Computed example of a mutant assay.
Amino acid sequence: MQDKDMVNDVLSMVNGSLSGYASAISQTENEQLRQTLQQIRNNDENCQYNLYKVASQKGFYKPASQATSQQIQEIKSQFNA
């Protein structure tokens, strides 16, 4: 397996776990458990960002182009309507 495939697989797994944490956090009533899940999620987000930086530096990942100010305003207006 090539480095690119391994990094992409790990990024995919971390992204999936982040979705799971978001769901669990929103449904957890116990404050201590909620804080623990949030801490785990935060650690995974940091891991994801570090992997993204590695993938980007090695040319494994090319982010989408930056949105224009007009595009940002259009999206904002859709959510504020």
Rank of each mutant, 00 (worst) to 15 (best):
Q27P: 04
L18Y: 07
K62L: 12
K62C: 04
V14K: 04
I25E: 07
S65W: 00
E45G: 05
Q35E: 11
Q73C: 04
S12E: 15
A67M: 03
Y52H: 08
G59F: 14
V10D: 07
Q66G: 00
T28V: 07
A24Q: 07
L51P: 07
S65T: 05
M6S: 14
L11N: 05
D44A: 09
A67D: 11
S65G: 01
D5W: 15
E74Y: 09
Q71T: 00
N8L: 15
A24E: 08
E29L: 02
Q35S: 11
L18A: 06
R41C: 01
E29D: 09
G59A: 14
M6Y: 14
Y52M: 03
E29Y: 02
Q57T: 09
S19K: 10
Y49V: 02
N30I: 13
C47R: 05
N15H: 06
R41Y: 02
S23P: 00
R34C: 10
S26H: 04
Q57C: 00
S12Y: 15
K58H: 09
D9I: 12
A55I: 00
K62Q: 13
I72Q: 05
S19C: 06
M13A: 15
Q57A: 14
A67N: 04
K62H: 13
S65D: 01
T36Y: 01
L11F: 07
K58G: 03
M13P: 09
L37R: 03
Q35P: 02
Q38K: 13
V54F: 12
T36C: 02
A64H: 04
A24V: 05
S19I: 08
E74I: 04
Y21W: 06
S69A: 12
